[in-house]
């Protein structure tokens, strides 16, 4: 399994055709206390860069973009009652949704963990 990152602070774990999407720990630390996560519907299809989800913090609502194109196969049901899970474990139990990738070649446009860490260090 490989993990990729976007410049907008989403991550995607890829295993074969399936990807799991979330926001990075850096993203949750910038957003502050998360109070609600609006998740996509299972079966919805999005292109790379489309808004697939919205994360509400006490401060603001933030769009979450699709790292690569795909179709949603599952959402993290635990976030409905416990959105703070994204603060506590953004890159683990606080994942947002799973997708079937439309075109694995799109992953080439994303960063690996080393590149993302270097990117965040510059912010």
């Amino acid at each position: 399994m490989s993990r990729y990152f976007t410049k907008d602070h989403e991550w995607i774990d890829v295993s074969g055709e399936t990807g799991t999407v979330g926001i990075t720990d850096y993203a949750q630390s910038q957003l502050g206390d998360i109070t609600f996560v609006e998740l996509p519907e299972s079966g919805a299809s999005f292109g790379a860069g489309d808004t697939a989800s919205v994360v509400d913090s006490v401060k603001a609502a933030s769009d979450i973009y699709m790292p690569v194109g795909g179709t949603v196969t599952a959402i993290n049901e635990a976030l409905a009652d416990a959105p703070e899970l994204v603060n506590a474990a953004a890159e683990g139990d606080g994942w947002l949704f799973k997708v079937t990738l439309a075109d694995a070649a799109e992953l080439a446009a994303l960063m690996d963990e080393t590149a993302y860490k270097a990117y965040v260090a510059e912010l």
Binding site: K59, A60, A61, S62
Partner: peptide, 8 residues
């Protein structure tokens, strides 16, 4: 992610 309610 991007904040849609950015401060002035």
């Amino acid at each position: 992610m991007s904040e849609s309610d950015t401060p002035e």
